[in-house]
């Protein structure tokens, strides 16, 4: 009985505030835009009895999803989100791996402090971290002033409001997500494995490629998913750093909902985004599962 009460409260909460809302999104994505309040049709009218339910289901269709395929704004936004997420994930890996490696090789007594230095920016406001790059990357920003001052460029570079700024923003804000799992994998690595590799004829560099790198693979995979998954649906970074040409699906969804007030299409956009995300999420879970099993 006590167990039932313990389960019931969080369970009910999540069903009401997570699961049901999701069903509503699904339902509205199958509805049509209407000039009404709320601005979509059909509405479920239980007072009309069986006929009402029949009318309701009869009124649902995949029109919005077909619309998503015909209007090239949407599929371009999906593709460009995917592209931006993939490229920035790889960039984050390239920046994060050497840092994680350096931390794992650093003297023992420095590591907790370094760990803290990696986590600290993560606990300050996301919005502020993205905002901090606006002043750096703008045409009259600090970076351009610096480069002009050095005489490296004669014209200010146009970085803010381009995809490059979005890449920088994603790498910057999600870097801890990449460093921490890779560091954890490298830290676990038994030093005698590298000595064994050297003993069996490897140079330091081959020992890295044949032992360290493959054994940190699961950390890299975890880090990549931890960056890729949120980057795909990112809204703040493209809104502040990307220009009007930088299409990302999170931003499209937000604008569709608030500016165009087209709730059915916004819902359909959300459903498709989730369907796209399911693949990396399942792969990520499988990687974590394998990691846990290997640990046992």
């Amino acid at each position: 009985m006590r167990k039932f009460a313990l389960i019931a409260l969080p369970y009910t909460w999540l069903v009401l505030l997570f699961f049901v809302p999701f069903l509503i999104v699904l339902k509205i994505s199958l509805s049509d835009l209407a000039l009404a309040r709320p601005p979509y049709a059909p509405q479920l009218d239980l007072s009309a009895g069986w006929q009402g339910i029949k009318d309701f289901f009869g009124g649902l269709d995949f029109e919005n999803f077909i619309w998503l395929t015909t209007d090239d704004l949407y599929w371009k936004a999906y593709l460009s989100s995917l592209k931006i997420a993939v490229i920035s994930t790889l960039l984050t890996l390239m920046v994060g791996y050497p840092m994680a490696y350096g931390m794992a090789k650093a003297p023992e007594e420095w590591r907790p402090a370094m760990m803290m230095l990696v986590i600290l920016p993560f606990s300050t406001s996301f919005l502020i971290r993205v905002y901090s790059w606006m002043g750096i990357l703008s045409t009259e920003g600090y970076l351009n002033q610096f480069l002009l001052g050095l005489g490296l460029i004669s014209e200010p570079l146009m970085i803010l409001n381009t995809p490059v700024a979005v890449y920088i923003g994603i790498v910057y804000t999600y870097l801890p997500f990449m460093i921490l799992p890779i560091y954890a994998a490298l830290d676990k690595l038994d030093g005698s494995l590298l000595e064994a590799a050297e003993d069996l004829g490897c140079s330091r560099f081959t020992a890295f490629w044949l032992v360290t790198f493959p054994l940190s693979r699961s950390g890299m995979i975890a880090g990549c998913f931890l960056v890729f998954i949120p980057a795909l649906g990112e809204f703040v970074i493209p809104s502040l750093l990307g220009g009007s040409e930088t299409l990302m699906i999170g931003k499209v969804l937000y604008e569709e909902f608030f500016n165009n007030r087209d709730w059915p299409v916004a819902s359909a956009v959300a459903v498709v985004l989730l369907l796209i995300l399911i693949i990396p999420i399942v792969l990520f879970q499988r990687n974590q599962q394998k990691e846990r099993e290997a640990g046992q």
Binding site: L17, F18, V20, P21, F22, I24, V25, I28, I229, P230, L232, G233, E234, F235, G250, L253, Y254, F257, W263, A266, S267, A270, L273, L274, L277, I281, F284
Partner: peptide, 15 residues
């Protein structure tokens, strides 16, 4: 934990 915030926000608003 993995749900894009835009979707969580949208679904709650609709609720």
């Amino acid at each position: 934990l993995v749900m894009p915030e835009v979707i969580t926000g949208l679904s709650l608003l609709l609720l």
